[in-house]
Design a protein around this nucleic acid. Structure first.
Length: 641
DNA sequence: CGAGCTCCTG
DNA sequence: CAGGAGCTCG
């Protein structure tokens, strides 16, 4: 893996920067496929802690050795790929702490901060970085969908091959992304520890490399705009920017991103502040560079443009991180889609609820970005993707939709509410490549083919990112890439979606399944698996019904009217726990009705001693299967969950 | 005969 | 939740 950071981090001349970007060019796309998986797996605080500790140690050594030259002294030649091998180990570890202070390196020899008590400072840094990573990891259940499963599946497959080569033979193949990825799945395999560690490292490297690149750009900007310092008073309107970071904890971006930002050395912060000041200048002058005293030539102009773009990018990035650091905020943001169904909450609602501590950021952002699209990245991409991809069709659900909406506040999105480290990573990448307005489009860091289709379009790249989030949702194992139709196998995400669909339909036809799993390449195996899922759902459902019906009878109930199902019912809780474990989905009232009918059917049958007939349940099944509702169109979106 | 279902088992 | 047996149905 060409993930070495140290080789690439210290370029300040535009040449060096360009070279670096070229060198990195291939990675983002490659990395996406390779690292997406591991992004969801950061839950091992201990590992992180360990890595960070090593990192800090190494970093100290590196600093002492002046491994990092002052930014201004570095030329593009330091970036030779061939040198990576030697340093990769160092740099990879070193990079672990990089997000905290890469920006400081260039000035480390001259900066007063270099003298401060490293120990304490690094400790604090480590803790903060750990926090950040944990926050980004999000999922407590995150696990590594690993090769172990594959081999296991293959093993089953092999066994099955001896028995029959027909229908179900290949099912196991497609279960590699299946329920194993669920919360209970503990079959990770023993060898995965190291893999996990490795992935963790790589992932951290990736993130940190991105951060470093951002920060380098800031440094670069700073150097370019050094002479503009006096213009700082212009920052006034920007509010918190006024706060000079006399204390190193002061952060211009305030809010919940503090942890992240505090990790930037104050030196770096100053640069950012100055950068922003300059940028504001630029904005004010409406793109004229007149105030740029020394902007007489093209290179300067280009550099300035670049710096401005970087500044804007970073604003967005920090906003993203801000959201990441406060997961509960995400809940609020995403929950917009909860009320799928009749009233069809619009996309607008997704944007409505803004995290409180992002207000300031957002306000400030608006000063810079007028267009609505810039706001889009703030909302988690799940919601966004619906906006983009939502199918036009939307016939209201059938007569059965007796649903009594609207529901209270805590509605459930059928998007996942977890923060998605993958997003941040991709957003970082994207910002590094494009800037929020695609400003980088003309620069050498041209995006890989797909993303490059329209460099002037802001939407496309964000869209590209936005349709992916599904992948990284907590239970999402890996590469359930909604963008790529024809993926193989069903993912835990699909499973969750199927469970939610069960609230509407207990007996979905295969056509329905195909309709509502558009991102699944259907074949016999997949279809069978999906059908099997619903069969299992039904099994659980009926078992519960029978159980509660019998219990009610035992408890002395003798009237069907006593058999009711409400959201407070034990029965409902049980069902909800099964199909909607995260409880982030508002179960339609219709399901309660159906459940009640089912319960009553069981109650009647048992009361009348029909259960002596071996096939007594069939009559009930026959009744229940007619009670299916239409699944809301929202489910048709391949990334609605 | 194959699809789809239930039931049982792991 | 998956596999498999056994059943029904078109």
């Amino acid at each position: 893996m060409n993930l070495s950071l140290s080789d690439q981090s210290m370029h300040t001349s535009s040449e060096g920067y360009l070279e670096e970007e070229k060198g990195e060019l291939l990675h983002p796309c490659f990395r996406r496929s390779v690292y997406d998986d591991s992004l969801t797996t950061y839950s091992k605080g201990s590992i992180i802690s360990q890595l960070l500790r090593k990192t800090i140690q190494n970093k100290r050594v590196l600093e002492d050795n002046l491994f990092y030259l002052p930014a201004t002294a570095v030329s593009s030649s330091t970036m030779a790929d061939s040198s990576q091998e030697d340093r990769s180990s160092n740099s990879s570890k070193e990079s672990m702490a990089e997000p905290a202070s890469p920006g400081s390196h260039p000035s480390v020899t001259a900066s007063p901060q270099a003298d401060r008590p490293l120990n304490e400072h690094h400790q604090a840094k480590r803790a903060r970085v750990e926090n950040i990573i944990r926050g980004m990891a999000g999922s407590p259940n995150a696990r590594i969908p690993g090769e172990g499963e594959r081999s296991e599946a293959d093993g089953r497959d092999a066994r099955d091959a001896y028995r029959e080569n027909k229908r179900k033979q290949r099912l196991p193949q497609h279960q590699e992304h299946g329920p194993d990825g669920g919360p209970g799945g503990s079959r990770g395999g023993s060898g995965s520890k190291e893999e996990e560690c490795q992935r963790l490292k790589e992932q951290l490297q990736t993130m940190q490399r991105l951060l470093r690149q951002l920060q380098e750009k800031f440094v670069q900007v700073y150097n370019l705009s050094d002479s503009e310092q006096e213009d700082r008073e212009e920052v006034g309107p920007a509010g918190s920017m006024e706060h000079e970071d006399v204390e190193h904890n002061k952060e211009p971006f305030e809010g919940s991103d503090s942890e992240l930002h505090r990790d930037l050395d104050s030196d770096f912060e100053k640069r950012m502040d100055s950068t922003k000041a300059v940028r504001r200048e630029t904005v004010k002058t409406s793109g004229h560079f007149a105030f740029h005293k020394d902007s007489k030539n093209l290179p300067e102009t280009l550099k300035y443009e670049l710096s401005r773009a970087v500044s804007e990018s970073v604003d967005l990035v920090f906003k993203k991180f801000s959201s990441t650091l406060s997961p509960q905020l995400k809940m609020g943001q995403i929950s917009a889609h909860v009320n799928i169904g009749p009233e069809k909450k619009t996309q607008i609602s997704c944007v409505q609820e803004q995290p409180h501590n992002e207000d300031a950021i957002k306000t400030r952002s608006r000063e810079y970005y007028e267009s609505a699209e810039v706001q889009i990245p703030e909302d988690q991409t799940e919601a966004l993707s619906l906006v983009v991809r939502k199918p036009p069709l939307s016939h209201p659900s059938s007569v059965n939709q007796v649903v009594k909406r609207p529901y209270p506040v805590h509605q459930a999105p059928f998007q996942f509410s977890y923060s998605t480290p993958l997003h941040e990573n991709q957003i970082l990448e994207h910002l590094l490549k494009y800037g929020p307005h695609g400003n980088f489009g003309g620069l050498p860091c041209l995006p890989p083919a797909v993303d490059r289709s329209s460099p002037d379009s802001v939407d496309l790249p964000w869209d590209t990112i936005s349709v992916r989030p599904k992948v990284s949702s907590t239970q999402m194992a890996h590469h359930a890439r909604p963008t790529a139709l024809g993926q193989e196998g069903l993912t835990p995400n699909h499973l969750k979606k199927a469970k939610l669909m069960f609230f509407y339909t207990r007996y979905p036809s295969s056509n329905v399944l195909k309709t509502f799993f558009p991102d699944v390449k259907f074949n016999r195996c997949i279809t069978s698996q999906l059908i099997k899922w619903f069969s299992n759902f039904r099994e659980f459902y009926y078992i519960q019904m029978e159980k509660f019906a019998r219990q009610a009878i035992v408890d002395g109930a003798n009237d069907v009217k006593d058999m009711s199902v409400t959201r407070d019912s034990e029965l409902f809780r049980s069902l909800n726990m099964h199909y909607n474990k995260a409880n982030d989905f508002q179960v339609p009232d219709r399901f309660l009705e159906v459940a009640e009918i089912t319960l009553q059917e069981f109650f009647n049958a048992i009361s009348l001693a029909k259960d002596t007939d071996p096939s007594w349940k069939k009559a009930i099944y026959k009744v229940i299967c007619k009670l299916d509702s239409d699944v809301p169109d929202d489910f048709k979106s391949s990334n609605c969950v």
